[in-house]
Simulated assay, not measured.
Amino acid sequence: MDTHYINEVLKGNTNAFGYFIRTYQNKAFGLAISIVKREDDAKDVVQDSFITAYSSLTNFRNDSKFSTWFYRIVVNTALQFIKREKRKHEVTGEYSITKDEKTALNNAISQLEKQDLKKLIKGIFEIISAKEALVLQLYYIDEQNIAEIEAITSLTKANVKVLLYRGRKSFYKVLKNQKLKELN
């Protein structure tokens, strides 16, 4: 279906590009916010990404899915935004989690209501590093496989796996710290 709309836009039907906006804006926003952390900034990144995709549509070669190509644009635009704004959030240090702690955290998460869970995840994504949040967003929320994440982010397979591992550890560490604060 994407191919039909790509051809329409390339033929000069600018209204056909609305299909891409309607189809991809929510996931693009999710990707952007996982990187830039603020809603207003994420909206700007998504808007810039759509403008870039529209003006670069003639360069789309159909050797991958349009979504993969477009999400790559979103990631690049967000990373460029971070460089310009010099806003980096990093979680440093080593942390290991026991099997019992993981089980307890998973049980606690499953008891949260869906809306609370979304707020919790968004809050944690704002704390952990942008790359870790991006990879976790793509893998767990957008359900992209490792090969698709490689294509979207230009990271190697090994880097994606390392970021998934570190991201999970960072996520659990932040979650555990928040739960400990609530108990005190």
Score class of each variant (00 low, 15 high):
L79V: 10
K86Y: 01
V75A: 15
S154N: 14
F17T: 05
D44V: 04
T77L: 03
E148G: 00
K11C: 06
E182T: 03
L120V: 05
V135Q: 13
L175Q: 08
N15G: 11
E113C: 03
Q137D: 05
D40S: 13
Y54W: 10
T92A: 12
K118G: 00
K27H: 02
T68K: 00
K65N: 01
K118F: 00
E85R: 14
A108G: 06
N62K: 10
Y71L: 02
T14L: 12
L120S: 11
E143F: 06
A108M: 06
G167C: 03
S154R: 07
R61T: 11
E101F: 01
V46Q: 02
D63I: 05
T14C: 04
L31Y: 01
L164Q: 14
F20Y: 04
V135I: 15
V160R: 06
E94K: 10
S64N: 02
S56G: 09
I127K: 15
W69E: 01
K157H: 15
S129C: 09
V74A: 11
Y140R: 07
I149L: 02
V36T: 13
A133D: 12
G12F: 06
V174T: 12
E150F: 01
A78V: 07
V74C: 08
H4Q: 11
Y19N: 05
T68N: 00
L163W: 08
T92K: 14
K37V: 08
A130W: 03
L180H: 06
S49N: 08
I97M: 15
A158D: 11
Y54F: 15
E148C: 00
L180W: 03
Y71N: 01
A130E: 15
L164R: 14
A133S: 15
Y140V: 04
V36C: 07
K157M: 05
F17R: 07
T156M: 05
K37W: 05
K11L: 11
D40M: 06
Y139N: 13
I21S: 05
E39F: 01
K102V: 02
L175Y: 15
E126I: 03
M1V: 05
E85Y: 09
V45S: 11
N106I: 02
K43D: 13
T23I: 03
Y95I: 09
I51H: 12
G167E: 10
N62L: 06
Q115W: 02
F171W: 10
E143M: 08
E143T: 06
Y165A: 10
K99I: 11
L175R: 06
Y95D: 07
L136Q: 12
I35F: 01
M1C: 02
T77R: 15
M1S: 12
V135A: 12
T153F: 04
E143A: 10
V74P: 00
K43M: 12
L79D: 10
K131T: 12
E94M: 11
L175C: 04
K131I: 08
A42E: 13
E126Y: 07
